[in-house]
Design a protein around this nucleic acid. Sequence first.
DNA 1: AATAATTTGTTATATTATAACACTATCTTC
DNA 2: GAAGATAGTGTTATAATATAACAAATTATT
Lengths: 131, 131
Amino acid sequence: MKNKKNELTKNQKIVLDCIQKSNKPVKAYSILSNVSKKGLKAPPQVYRALEKLIEVGEVHKIESLNSFVACNSKCIEPNGTIFSICKSCDQTTEVSNVALAKFLSDFKDMNGTQFSGFNLELFGTCKSCKT
Amino acid sequence: MKNKKNELTKNQKIVLDCIQKSNKPVKAYSILSNVSKKGLKAPPQVYRALEKLIEVGEVHKIESLNSFVACNSKCIEPNGTIFSICKSCDQTTEVSNVALAKFLSDFKDMNGTQFSGFNLELFGTCKSCKT
DNA sequence: AATAATTTGTTATATTATAACACTATCTTC
DNA sequence: GAAGATAGTGTTATAATATAACAAATTATT
């Protein structure tokens, strides 16, 4: 069942706020230490908020970094994520490329069945790390 | 520097063999318990073998499952991996689709720079889980 | 208000992964 | 084939990531 106004709860807001304020993917325990002053003192509190935020699409997990980012653009693809990740500094940005998103969404398996979701992580070197 | 014959070492062979015998991605600690009878008794022994096997391309890590699979096909793409993962049973297969691989390899960032690598995980429901 | 569902706070513990160090084996080159 | 370099091994300890389980509090529904 939903929240009355379909809004995020206190803890979920606190965690989301923390993630949004970072310009890089954040690790769960880093979130935990950042929000401990706001009353979230144990891992489950953070992980539960993360789970919900991911479910509603406000947050994505960067699997290869075990880290979390806020959804910036309002994703162009509801069933998939595309990230560009700097191998050197972990700076990560959500890639909004219509052609790529469409290619992936439309992609079918050998039996012609469409996949229900995808996650693409592109690795490279970011601008600041190149110089 | 390489091994004399450019071969895998004993521990690397043991770990690779264990992964190849599985029809699903295997977790590091599952490998550990499977190979303990062959003398690998501590996590670092497994993780070091995995690191090398990944480096030489014999094994890939499935990030969203924290698990490892053997490279079956000899990948069509040297710099990227594409997996199809069953959401229900974790059955995973490496996808060898030339068009998709080419699309991803050729994909460029906003500045026109090619990425150096990619990992794509496609989620769906496998044949046996559908029935 | 009574019930149901969700969220919270908390403790404990499971799971995944690496640091550090002493030692051994192999490779290189002279 | 000895000396130094490189890579792999065995081991202990611990770091980092994530979840189970349960009681209490909050919010929504009737």
